[in-house]
Design a protein around this nucleic acid. Structure first.
Length: 582
RNA sequence: GCGGUGGUGGUCUAGCCUGGUAAGAUACCGCCCUGCCACGGCGGGGUUCGCGGGUUCGAAUCCCGCCCACCGCACCA
C-alpha cells in the first residue's frame, strides 16, 4: 500500500482545507483521540443524524430521548461496565512503570489470550509469584495487580466520594428512562428508544483519526420486546434484502468469506437468532447504502463469544471496507436479552417489568405471606418498617420454605420467625403476567459513518476533487453564483440566494474568482447544484443549474424553482428533469 | 506502551547532512481583465520553523527531553 498519498491522506487534507474536520487542541499540539468538526463537517454530521433519525426513529414510530453524559458510579455498577470495562495492570515497585497485566503474562509465559482474559487479579498475581515474573524494563518486583477502567472518571460536585463516569455508551440512559417511556407508550411493547449523543472511552492508544476517538457520537436504538413474542411485524418489508454475513462458526474456523443470504434465509438457517436483529441489520445496510457505500463494500460479521460485550448474547458488527484500514466497524447489532433491565432492577430495586394480559385467565396456586403486625411491632419496634420492606423483597415461596425448614429466616440484620408472618396457600386467578423485556440494539458510531461517507464520496476528475455526496446528505445543497461581478448580476444573484435561504435550503454564496474556479470550490465541498445568474437571467428570469457529478447544465425558470429543488433533494426527480439542457 | 518516519506562512512543500537570522507554489486581500469549468496581469499582507531546554557570537539546521500525526506490533468491552 502506498502510504504517501492514499485516500485517507487525501481526505484528511481535504477535510482540513475545506473545513470538514481537523485535530482538536491544535494550537497546544493536539491530543490523540479528539477531533474538531468544521463548518462543513457539522452540516454533514447533522444531515447524517437527521437521516438516521428519519430511518430508525420517525419511520419506525419510535421515540428519542436525551440523557446525561456524566452518570453516577452506581449506574455502571449495575450495568456491569465497572466490572467489564477495564483492564488489569501491574505497577513496578522499583521504577514505577505500569504494564498491562494480561499482555505481560501472555508474552512472558506464552499463554493464550482467551485463557488470560478469564483470569482474576488473584490468579494473575499468583502466576507472577509462581513464575517469578519481574518488571520487563528494570527487573524490579511487580506490585499486586489492579484494574484500570477505560471509562473517564470524574467527581460530581465537590465531594471526592461522589464518583461519576463519562458514559461509554448511550444505552444506559435509555434503560434508566425505560419506565417513563413505557408509561408514555401506555405500557405496550414493542417500542424503542433512540438516542444520539456523545460518549467517552478512554482508549489506551487511539489512532486512525476519525475512526478511533476518545470522544465520539453514538446513534443508538434500544428496542424492548416481550421475549415470548419476538416476531418483527415488519420483517416482510426486508425479507428479500441480501445480507453479506460472516457467521461465527465460519469465523471460528478462520474463515472470512461472507455468505450472501436474504434476511429470510439468514433466519431460517439460524444464522441470525432473532427477526428484529435481522430487521435492523437490513435497515442498517440500506441506510449505509443511502450514504453512498455500495453493498459489496459492506458486510456483517458475527462476534465470537469472547469478543462480545458482557451484555450481549448474539452480536453482529456491520463493517465497511475502507481503503487504508480494511474492514471497519460502523455499527453493532446486539441482542442484549434482559441483562440491562434486570441488572438495574436488582441494583435500584425499581420494578422494570411489563404487565402482559393473558388471553385466558388461569388459576394459579400461590403462597402468600402476610405480616403479623402485632408480633413485628413487639419484636422490632421502630425498625418494623424496615423489616416489612425486607419481607416483601423476598419471594413468598422462598420465605415460607426457609421458615418451614429452619424455623427462622435471616433478613439483613433481622431474624424473622414463624410467628411474625402468616403463610397461606391461596388460589388466584391470573389475568396476566409480568416479565422483563428483552432488548435488541443497533448502535452506530457517527464519526466512522461520516468518515465512510467522505471516503465513498471522494472522486477525482481531470485532476480536481469532487465530493459526490448523495443529495440527501450533501452538507450544502445549492451554490449561487453571479456569472460576472458587474452589470447588476451580483444583485440579482444575491436576491436568489436570499430567496433560497428563506425557503430553507442550505445555500452557499460565492462571487470571487472566475466561474470555473467557483465550480471547482463547490465540487470539493460536495455541493450538488450550482445555480448561475447570467445575462439571460436579466432578460427572462431563468438561471442555469450545473450538476456537480456530470458537469452538465440545464436552464430553468426562477418561477417555482424552490419546489423543483425540493423534490430533487428528496430524490424524486433527476438533474435533467430540473430544466432544459443547455 | 514499544520500534520506525515525520512536524517549516491558512494549505502543500524546499531548506536541515555541510549552523549565518526563511524560500516556492497555492490560498487570501486590492485594482485591472472577465460572458460557464482551476483565465491572465500588476500590487499587497501573512511564517514565535511542534513545545521546552542545551551547545554556540549565532540554531529551522547540532544535542537532550516532551507533545502530536502516520506506519508496524499490541489494544479496541
Amino acid at each position: 500500500m502506498d502510504v504517501r498519498e492514499d485516500k485517507y491522506e487525501k481526505i484528511v487534507k481535504l477535510a482540513k482545507r475545506r473545513g470538514f474536520f481537523w485535530e482538536a487542541f491544535e494550537i497546544y499540539g493536539g491530543v490523540s483521540g479528539f477531533l474538531d468538526f468544521g463548518p462543513l463537517g457539522v452540516l454533514l454530521k447533522r444531515r447524517i443524524i437527521d437521516l438516521w433519525v428519519d430511518w430508525f426513529v420517525k419511520r419506525e414510530g419510535f421515540v428519542e430521548v436525551e440523557t446525561p453524559l456524566i452518570n453516577p458510579e452506581v449506574v455502571f455498577e449495575a450495568s456491569g461496565h465497572l466490572e467489564s470495562f477495564r483492564e488489569p495492570a501491574f505497577k513496578c515497585l522499583k521504577c514505577g512503570r505500569r504494564f498491562r497485566a494480561d499482555h505481560l503474562i501472555e508474552e512472558k509465559l506464552g499463554l493464550d489470550s482467551v485463557e488470560v482474559e478469564k483470569m482474576g487479579l488473584k490468579e494473575l498475581y499468583d502466576l507472577v509469584l509462581d513464575k517469578g515474573l519481574k518488571c520487563p524494563e528494570c527487573g524490579g518486583e511487580l506490585g499486586e495487580p489492579y484494574y484500570f477502567t477505560t471509562m473517564f472518571k470524574t467527581f460530581i460536585g465537590p465531594y471526592a466520594e461522589d464518583v461519576g463516569y463519562g458514559r461509554p455508551e448511550a444505552a444506559q440512559g435509555m434503560f434508566l428512562a425505560f419506565r417513563r417511556v413505557l408509561d408514555l407508550k401506555r405500557g405496550k411493547l414493542p417500542f424503542a428508544i433512540a438516542q444520539v449523543g456523545k460518549v467517552l472511552r478512554n482508549e489506551i492508544s487511539p489512532r486512525q483519526g476519525p475512526i478511533r476517538l476518545r470522544e465520539f457520537t453514538i446513534m443508538e436504538l434500544e428496542l424492548f420486546i416481550d421475549p415470548e413474542d419476538v416476531e418483527c411485524p415488519k420483517i416482510s418489508e426486508v425479507e428479500d434484502e441480501v445480507l453479506r454475513i460472516v457467521p461465527g462458526d465460519v469465523r471460528a474456523k478462520g474463515g472470512e468469506e461472507p455468505l450472501e443470504l436474504t434476511v429470510r434465509e439468514s433466519l431460517d438457517r439460524g444464522v441470525v437468532d432473532m427477526e428484529w436483529l435481522a430487521y435492523f441489520m437490513a435497515r442498517a445496510k440500506q441506510f449505509i447504502r443511502e450514504l453512498g457505500v455500495p453493498e459489496e463494500s459492506q458486510r456483517f460479521i458475527e462476534k465470537l463469544p469472547w469478543e462480545r460485550a458482557h451484555y450481549s448474547s448474539q452480536g453482529f458488527d456491520q463493517e465497511i471496507l475502507l481503503e487504508r484500514w480494511g474492514w471497519v466497524e460502523v455499527s453493532g447489532h446486539n441482542y442484549r436479552t434482559d441483562y440491562d433491565l434486570r441488572r438495574h432492577m436488582e441494583h435500584s430495586g425499581v420494578d422494570m417489568t411489563v404487565y402482559k394480559p393473558l388471553e385466558k385467565p388461569i388459576m394459579v396456586e400461590k403462597t402468600q405471606v402476610k405480616p403479623v403486625y402485632e408480633a413485628l411491632r413487639r419484636d422490632f419496634g421502630d425498625e418494623m418498617g424496615e423489616v416489612l420492606k425486607l419481607i416483601k423483597s423476598v419471594k413468598p415461596e422462598v420465605l415460607a420454605e426457609n421458615l418451614a425448614e429452619k424455623g427462622f429466616v435471616r433478613l439483613g440484620d433481622f431474624t424473622v420467625k414463624p410467628e411474625h408472618v402468616r403463610v397461606e396457600k391461596i388460589t388466584v386467578e391470573e389475568k396476566g403476567k409480568r416479565f422483563i423485556p428483552h432488548v435488541v440494539e443497533p448502535s452506530f458510531g457517527l464519526e466512522r459513518v461520516v468518515y465512510s461517507a467522505l471516503e465513498y464520496a471522494y472522486t477525482e476528475r481531470e485532476g480536481r476533487v469532487v465530493m459526490s455526496f448523495p443529495v440527501s446528505i450533501a452538507p450544502i445543497q445549492v451554490a449561487v453564483y453571479p456569472l460576472v461581478t458587474k452589470d447588476g448580476l451580483p444583485e440579482k444573484a444575491w436576491s436568489v440566494y436570499r430567496r433560497l435561504l428563506d425557503e430553507g435550503f442550505e445555500v452557499y454564496w460565492d462571487d470571487s474568482g472566475s466561474i470555473g474556479r467557483r465550480y471547482v470550490r463547490s465540487d470539493e465541498m460536495g455541493i450538488p447544484l450550482a445555480l448561475t445568474v447570467d445575462y439571460q437571467t436579466l432578460k427572462d428570469d431563468t438561471v442555469t443549474l450545473r450538476d456537480r457529478d456530470s458537469w452538465r447544465q440545464v436552464r430553468t425558470p426562477l418561477a417555482g424553482i424552490e419546489d423543483r429543488l425540493r423534490i430533487f433533494f428528496k430524490g424524486r426527480i433527476s438533474f435533467e428533469e430540473l430544466g432544459e439542457p443547455v
